[in-house]
Design a protein around this nucleic acid. Structure first.
Length: 297
DNA sequence: ATCGGTCCCTGTGTGC
DNA sequence: TGCACACAGGGACCGA
């Protein structure tokens, strides 16, 4: 569910509210939430206890909190929100959420005993937490990221995103443009909403093959991807319902700015043609059949 | 090395 | 009111 603007909004909240704090204890209430931590919930809890959170980082839709303690120096708590995951900073005495799967208590509880805790809540359980080692990034060895995140490409707002490499790889592909935009090892942070919005802005049909794009079209596409991600980030992301929220439980406001996503039957804001919904890749794609011409097959 | 399809879950809305 | 089905911001994995 959450894409770059939503995940970055969460990262920013973590940077404000949990960086610098020391973990006291971890309570795993649903084992599936830590299934990717192969050593199990007990190991995760034991290693997190006593560790100080030193930063809040992100690559694409992955988040991680680097740790510092006697035992954990090059490790991080890695989180992926999947379709419905939330990281919430909540008062310790606030009621448990229905799908609260992991609770992280901090050592710095004020005297009144009502400090905040970090909660991982996830209705559909596609997301999860794990501890992982930090390793050098492939392209910039001075930069570190969790080993499990190495295969994720940089996102288009990352200052070290390489436009030329992206263009070359995209134009070599025999796959549909939309599939390529959703491939996190090619470009990260873009999901179903922002792929559709970017393609509409660039007037490209999602079923166009990467190979058929001219370099100028790839540049235009990248420009529009960046524009829509930046605008959404400024609005705090897109919240169709209460599933995507920031760490304080608040939604974002970008839904009203969407041009095609979820707007089947409504007029295209550019030409007035009715927006169409296509089933594609087991997902919905929304597009303007006039502005985004289907490629000849 | 790529590509497309399938599966993992729970909840909500729709139509019969 | 109940039930069946489609669908939902993702991605790992598996054959071809």
């Amino acid at each position: 569910m959450p894409e770059l603007p939503e995940v970055e909004t969460v990262r920013d909240g973590l940077a404000r509210w949990v960086v610098g704090r020391t973990v006291a204890s971890v309570e795993v209430r649903h084992p599936r939430a830590v299934r990717r931590h192969l050593l199990g919930a007990a190991d995760l809890g034991a290693r997190l206890a006593g560790a100080r959170i030193t930063a809040a980082s992100r690559r694409g839709k992955y988040l991680w909190l680097p740790l510092a303690s006697a035992a954990e120096t090059d490790s991080a708590l890695v989180a992926h929100l999947g379709m419905s995951g939330q990281l919430l900073v909540r008062p310790a005495d606030s009621p448990d959420e229905r799908h609260l799967h992991v609770r992280i208590r901090f050592a710095d509880v004020p005297p009144d005993g009502t400090g905040t805790e970090l909660r991982f809540v996830d209705q559909r359980t596609f997301g999860g937490l794990m501890l992982d080692q930090l390793v050098p990034a492939v392209d910039r060895p001075d930069e570190r990221l969790p080993a499990q995140v190495r295969h994720i490409a940089r996102d288009p707002l990352d200052p070290h995103f390489d436009d030329a490499i992206f263009s070359a790889r995209l134009r070599r592909r025999d796959s549909a443009l939309k599939r390529a935009l959703l491939d996190q090892s090619l470009i990260s942070g873009v999901g179903n909403i922002y792929a559709d919005e970017s393609l509409w802005r660039a007037r490209l049909h999602g079923e166009r093959r990467g190979q058929t794009l001219r370099p100028a079209q790839v540049r235009e596409l990248l420009t529009q991807v960046r524009a829509v991600l930046t605008e959404s980030l400024r609005a705090g992301g897109t919240s169709f319902d209460a599933l995507y929220v920031n760490v304080n439980g608040e939604g974002g406001y970008f839904e009203r700015a969407l041009n095609v996503y979820g707007r089947e039957g409504e007029p295209c804001p550019r030409c007035g043609t009715a927006i169409r919904r296509l089933a594609f890749m087991n997902r919905s794609s929304f597009l303007c059949p006039n502005c985004q011409r289907r490629p000849r097959s």
